[in-house]
Structure formats: C-alpha cells, structure tokens
Design a binder for these strands. Structure first.
Lengths: 216, 216
DNA sequence: TTAGTGAATGACTGAGAGTCATTTTTTTTA
DNA sequence: TAAAAAAAATGACTCTCAGTCATTCACTAA
C-alpha cells in the first residue's frame, strides 16, 4: 500500500525536476526565448512528458510564479511575526516586499507579468488558479496586519482593513516596479539627483506617518 | 514637387489603416489570438505590406500603445490647464489618469503590459523607443505640476519634484491597476463591503491631504 | 514610349507548441 | 515465475503562424 504514496512522491519529484529546468532557462534566457524542447533536454525528459505534468508552457510559468508567491508569503509571515504593534507589522510587510523584489528579481518579474495581464482563473486545475488563491492569501496577511493595528490602536481606522490592504498593496507594487525598472539607470546616471536607495525608505516613512496614530 | 509630400501623406494613411485594423482585432480578440494574416485581411492589404510599415507584430502593438500615450498626454495637458494652483493640477492629473483607464481600458491595458515588461529601447527606429520617450513626456507633465505647486506654495516641498512625480505615478498606477482588475468582481459581489467607485476618490483625498500645504 | 523607382504581393520557410500512436517500465494477477 | 494489465514515457509528427523575398504592379521622369 505504500506504492501509491511512493508514486505520488516520485511524481512530485519529476514535477520539481521539470520546474527547476524551466526556471533556470526562463530566468536566464527569458520565457519567450526558451523552447519546450530545451526545457525537456535540460530536465533529461522527452517533451511529451512535460505535458503530462503541466498543461502548457504558460502553466509551467505559472507554476514558477506559484513558487515565488510561496516565498513571498513566508517572507511576509516572518516579517509580521517579528513585530508586536500592528503598524510595525504593516511597515515590515512593505519592507519585506521590497526585499523580495531585490532578492528574487525573476520571481518578482513573473509576479508583475501576471499582475499586469488579466488571467483566466476559471479552470481550477491550472497553476493560474492556484496563483490566484495564493495571491489572495498573501493579501490577507497584509489585511490582518492592518486589522491588528486598528485593534491595538496603532493604525488609524481610516477605512476597512481589507480595503486599506489593497490600497497599500497597489501603491507599494507600483513604486517598487518603477524603482526596479529604473534602478540601474538612476544608479549609473546620478545627475538626475535621484537615489533609488532613498526612494523606497522615504515612501515607507511617508506611509508610516499617514497611518500611525499619535499615541503609538 | 508635391509628389514626395503626397507620397508621405499616403504612407501615413496606409499606416493608419493598418493600425486601425490591428487595434480592432487586438482589442476585441487579444493580441495573441490575432494573426498577422487577419490584420492584413482586415486592412485589405497583403501580409508583406504590414512589414513595410511595422518592424514586427510587437512593434505594431507598440504603435497602438503610442496612440494611447498621446491620448493620455493630451488628457493630462487639459487637466493641468484647467487649474491654477499646483496642488490642484496634481490632483487633476491623477483624476485624468483614472478617467483614461476607464474610457480607454484597452489602451490602458497596453500601457500596463509594457510597463510590467522590460522593453528594449535601444533601437531608436522602433515604436518601443517612441513609447519610451512619450512616457517620459507624460511624466514630465506630472513633474511640472508638482514643481509648479512647490513654487506657488501649494505643495509641500518634501522632495525633488521629479522624484515625487515618479512616486505619485507609481502609486497611482498600482492602485488603478488593482481596481481595474477587480472592478467587476467587487461591483457584482458587494458582500466584501468594497465599493470600487469610492476607492480612488479616497486615495486622491489621501494624497491631497499629504501634499497640500496648510495655507493652501 | 520606355526605363527606372518605389510599393505591394503572396507563396514559401523555419520555428516551435502541442499531440498521440507506440514503446518501455512497473504492478498486478494467475 | 510468466502473462496480463496499467501507468509512464517517448519522439516523430502536425499545424499554426511570424516573418521573408523573388516577383509583379503602379507610377514617374526622361
């Protein structure tokens, strides 16, 4: 009776092998520049096998995206766990998001790619759907931090916590995206007077000031 | 001697014909679901001709993006022209951005697509490059509004105007993206308590409060 | 009228995603 | 242990489609 379990384990292993191969190629050469034949080669499997584990090329990319979301989720959970006051949790989450975009630029790139394109989540058997659910999970961490802050009196109860989480998420994503796009350019060309390393801390201070209660 | 000029006019006309055809198909069926043969058919031209006017399919999509950027630019210029105080110009630009995303969701979609993907601007003969320049032009309108506000004393001189323009742009883009993605969902499912039509005005108020000087 | 130039054509090529009949491997049954 | 059944893997093949290029067509100038 251990056979079904071992099968499942082996199946999971194959899936990981394929994902590792795809990730390496996608991240170093770009998704469009990578063929499924190349992925199969690198995974030492035939092309047909890839399609036993993933619906299609996009699904494969979504699966990588899903990995990134799990990393992000854990970084958020760690960040939240390191602070007591809600307002501090909120800020820590923002900083964790920035750290994520720096440490895993390729996962971050995948996130942005899917964020900007309206995906079809109707088929629950796809990684697109799993990513959708995972995103909601990540957002809930933010909303919980906001809510905790409103409950402990450290965050101004300006609006519904869920709503505020969306607002914070959107703003922060937007700014991180801009900074990450222009980082090298701004760094190498200091005549603009824009120091990209100052921008995000400044933004976090700004948000902090807007949300934090006087008493906190 | 008017021949060269007429040629140029006709060339411009052809380009417009192709763009109109592509835009219709791209916007109603999606870029990936549209073939260049279909575009050629709709434009009543042969496929080869498309490639006399646009480098490739992506360039064609960039050209449509470029149209959108010009519309946005004009909306921004109008918005800025309707107000005197810098802070009011800034807010009007934000509201114009929102109006743009509502009125031209497909142009807006193209913008998001290119914003999230790192494009190659090295070839100055592509529409990608023209879009890059146009984006900078649009951003300069924002920066000018901010600077005007700092000069007339209506906007707090918290940081370099250009920098603040980037910050505002990033935040606003991020939030508009989120709202536009979830608009229908939130509208149709009011149990969340999130009214998407309240979210953006609330955000603009928030920014207004953060930037506006007491005396203004 | 004719030579020359620029524009347009569409059949063709190459690339690559996805399929499926066949083979190989593993498990179950007798 | 051998045969049958089931599961997994294969890779040659198909089909779609972006992009090309030798050829044709239309217009202009000599």
């Amino acid at each position: 009776m251990g056979i079904a379990e071992r099968r499942e384990r082996e199946r999971e292993l194959r899936r990981t092998t394929i994902l590792d191969a795809a990730e390496g190629l996608f991240f170093s050469n770009g998704v469009d520049q990578t063929t499924m034949d190349e992925v199969a080669d690198k995974a030492e499997l035939s092309k047909g096998t890839l399609y036993l584990y993933f619906k299609n090329k996009e699904d494969l990319y979504h699966a990588i995206h899903y990995r990134g979301l799990n990393i992000l989720k854990n970084m958020f959970l760690t960040a939240v766990g390191e602070h007591d006051a809600g307002i501090d949790k909120v800020r820590a989450v923002g900083e964790a998001y920035l750290a994520f975009s720096r440490k895993y630029p390729n996962y971050y790139g995948a996130m942005m790619y899917f964020e900007a394109n309206n995906m079809d989540f109707s088929d629950q058997a796809t990684y697109a759907f799993k990513c959708h659910e995972a995103s909601l999970g990540v957002l809930r961490i933010v909303a919980d931090a906001v809510e905790a802050g409103m409950n402990d009196g450290s965050v101004r109860p300006l609006m519904d916590p869920q709503l505020m989480a969306y607002l914070l998420w959107g703003q922060t994503s937007g700014i991180i995206l801009i900074v990450s796009k222009n980082y090298d350019h701004w760094k190498s060309d200091p005549e603009h007077g824009i120091d990209p390393d100052m921008l995000l801390p400044g933004f976090f201070d700004f948000i902090d000031k807007a949300l934090r209660t006087k008493s906190s």
